[in-house]
Amino acid sequence: MNKYRYNTNNNDFYRSQAWRTLRRQALERDKHLCQICLQHNELTFADTVHHIKPIRQNEAEKLNLNNLISVCRKCHNELHREKPMNLKKKKRRLNNYTNLVKRFTNNRETW
């Protein structure tokens, strides 16, 4: 299990009405533009809101609008490098399993 995301028990928080309202406010404040891409003179649609100070480090800042930044998915994955690497590992395992199953199911040898 990924200790950075899955052991935080923040699922209820991210489903709460307070978070949804604050998320919408952050996206509207930033005009739905990725603030990281904007620093590089690129206009990219932001669909994710990122906590600048992670919740696990500062619980009191989780509902502070000044602690939020609107980002695109690519930039959010860069900010959370542990997530995409874990996803790559899962895909690699799934591909290995799929290839193994194909090898045995395509075997036409009969006994």
Rank of each mutant, 00 (worst) to 15 (best):
Q57N: 15
R73Q: 13
T8H: 03
I36T: 00
C75P: 04
F13E: 05
T8G: 00
N2W: 03
L87N: 14
Y4P: 07
V101T: 14
R15L: 06
H32Q: 08
E59Y: 11
I36F: 00
L65S: 12
R103L: 12
M1Y: 13
K31A: 08
D12R: 14
N58Q: 13
L33K: 12
R15V: 09
R73A: 06
L27K: 08
P54M: 02
R56D: 06
A26N: 04
V49H: 07
E78L: 11
N9E: 01
Y4W: 12
A18T: 03
F13A: 06
T48D: 00
E59L: 09
L63D: 00
L33Y: 09
L68N: 01
E82K: 02
D30Y: 11
N58F: 10
Q17D: 12
R73K: 13
N10I: 11
H32D: 07
N67H: 08
T8A: 03
K31M: 07
A18R: 10
F104K: 11
R92C: 10
R29E: 02
I36C: 05
K89N: 08
I69R: 05
N99W: 00
R29F: 09
N67A: 05
L79Y: 06
H32L: 10
L94M: 13
E42R: 13
N107I: 07
R29Y: 07
C72M: 09
L38N: 02
L87H: 12
N107R: 06
D47W: 13
K53D: 04
V71Q: 02
H32V: 04
K88V: 01
L63G: 08
L68G: 00
H40Y: 08
K3F: 01
A18D: 10
E82I: 13
K53Q: 10
F13G: 05
Q25C: 11
N41V: 04
Y4G: 02
K62E: 01
K89G: 09
Q39S: 12
C34P: 02
